[in-house]
Amino acid sequence: MATIPADLPNVPTEQSGGDRRQVLIGYKAWAPKNMVGYVFLIGMTIYFLTPLYWLFIASSKDNTDLFASFGLWFANFKLLDNLTQLFTYEGGIYLRWILNTVLYAVVGGAASTFIAMMAGYALAKLRFLGNRLLFAMVLGAALVPLTTLAVPIYLVESKIPGLTHTYWAVLLPTLLSPFGVFLARIYATASISDDLIAAARVDGASEFRIFWSVALPILVPGMITIFLFQFVAIWNNFFLPLVVLSDPTLFPVNLGLATWSFDPAAHELLNNIIVTGSFVAVLPVAVLFLFLQRYWRAGLSLGSVTG
């Protein structure tokens, strides 16, 4: 393989178009009609960020100030106390929950992305019997309410010896991402030309090698986008772990938080650590989105041109 296009050949990425409006003739950011736009967007930003801002403020308060003081400003600053309490409560199980969630989301997200990529690539670029049927089934899977499938999934898992109540019981079902396959098909259709594959075949590359060395590098932004979607979905995963896990040391963080939040047997007031725990649980996802921004932006624009 001599040549790999380093960038997407035919789809204009957002990057390439990103700055072009800057040269709009006579554009002035602070012109009155533009000001209205800014004011509107600032308003929307306040809407998006206020709840998270509240969460941050609240996680710096003790149980008294949490409800007694003004919600949108600091009272006695107890963030460190709350963090200490959060990470030591019940033998420091919160850290374990965070690590579990990272494990579920990173491993499950990466593996399911790869599986979806392979399937989506095959659906888009390879001809085989049952192609259309498979795609129809992938779409159909999105229409069945998954919450009601948690118990049947558990019943299926219980037929496999030693699977339930382990990490695998949560990890394996997350490998399934019909939405990921759907996106992967769009990405592969949009960004990989048939000529490219034909050329690679001519060079004698095997189909897998073409996928691995030719298609995948082109599909990186799409892959990262799918990975992020799946990462968020797994980070949100609540009901399946509740059903298939019984050992609290294997719980993901949101199941753990829910355990604290709704446990009538809790004989202590846990509001401060629940709020602090919620705040900490948001951080890894937010940081991930921030750092992979470049890729998901490209991935989204890729997905948006072909609906």
């Binding site: 019984s246 709704f262 446990d263």
Partner: peptide, 13 residues
């Protein structure tokens, strides 16, 4: 094992 309780989680489980 201490199982989650509250909002009807325990018995269905």
């Amino acid at each position: 094992l201490k199982e989650p309780s509250g909002f009807g989680q325990y018995y269905p489980k």
